[in-house]
Amino acid sequence: MKILLVDGTILGSKTGAILEQVQTYIQEFAPEMELKILKLADYDHQFVDGRPLGEYNDSMQEIVRRFEDADGYIIASPIFQGSIPGVLKNTFDMLHPRTMRYKPVSIVANGGTYQHHLVIENQLKPILDYFRCLVTPNYVYTHTSHFDDTNTIINEDVHNRLRELARVFVQYAEMSTHLSKETLDNP
């Protein structure tokens, strides 16, 4: 099973640090999973404007291919100004509505205030619901204070929640293998 761990920003390193920790925990529960990190910072982004996929640059087409090839996702996002980064939303806008259908997804995020966890509920979950993903009920939101100066997670409660997120994600991934990705209705 191919799992795409999406670093949904082009700035900073805390989001990537969270993903690497989640990757470690998923490997503990399911070493057979093929885990790949997709760093949006590594791509040349174009604004999505509705043109056919083939008219976008190679970077944008590669992002779409990687999403299509994945069997599940860990979406990681910093919260900037009470919102997800535009580059992450732009990435979602590139995807066909069926790309992520019935595939497992877990969410991790980080921000500078404790209230920003609501962005997950108010922005990320509705987007993933639109795609009809199997969103795990537990997400992990981290605060700046959960990291040391080298962006290592130092809060044991955060580690426990990330382990639990990984455990639940693996169960959702197993469940998803029994669901047809085909549909009789429109996207």
Rank of each mutant, 00 (worst) to 15 (best):
E62C: 02
Q27L: 15
R65K: 12
E174S: 13
N186V: 10
M100H: 04
M1N: 08
R98W: 15
L165D: 07
Q115K: 14
I153D: 03
E62P: 03
T99K: 02
L128C: 10
V64E: 10
L53S: 05
P187F: 15
R65V: 03
E32K: 11
Y139H: 12
F67C: 02
L35P: 12
T15M: 00
H116M: 11
N57Y: 05
E34F: 06
Y43A: 01
T91C: 13
E62M: 01
A166R: 05
L38M: 13
D93Q: 05
E68C: 05
P126R: 06
E28H: 08
I37A: 00
I10K: 00
H117Y: 15
V105K: 00
E156N: 13
I26K: 02
E121C: 06
L162N: 08
I3Q: 02
E121I: 05
R167M: 02
F92M: 11
E174A: 14
L179A: 13
T152S: 13
H143A: 14
I3W: 02
G72V: 09
I120M: 08
G50K: 04
V108G: 10
D185N: 08
T152N: 14
Y114K: 13
G112M: 11
D7H: 07
F47K: 01
V168Q: 11
D42N: 12
M175R: 12
Y130C: 07
P52V: 10
K103Y: 03
H117M: 15
F80M: 01
T150E: 15
F67G: 04
G112S: 14
K125A: 06
F29P: 01
N151P: 03
D149Q: 13
A41M: 00
D44W: 11
M60E: 08
I107C: 09
P97C: 08
G72S: 09
G82E: 00
K2T: 08
T15F: 00
Q171F: 12
A17G: 09
I120V: 15
V135T: 14
T142Y: 03
A109W: 04
L124S: 09
S180D: 12
M175F: 15
I63S: 07
E55R: 11
P126T: 12
V22H: 10
F29T: 12
L11C: 01
E156R: 09
M33T: 11
E20F: 09
K14P: 00
R66W: 04
D44C: 09
H96C: 02
K181L: 10
Q21H: 10
M33K: 07
L5G: 11
V168C: 07
V105T: 11
I18S: 04
F67L: 01
A166V: 09
F67I: 02
T177F: 04
E174M: 08
Q46R: 01
R163M: 05
P31T: 10
R161T: 07
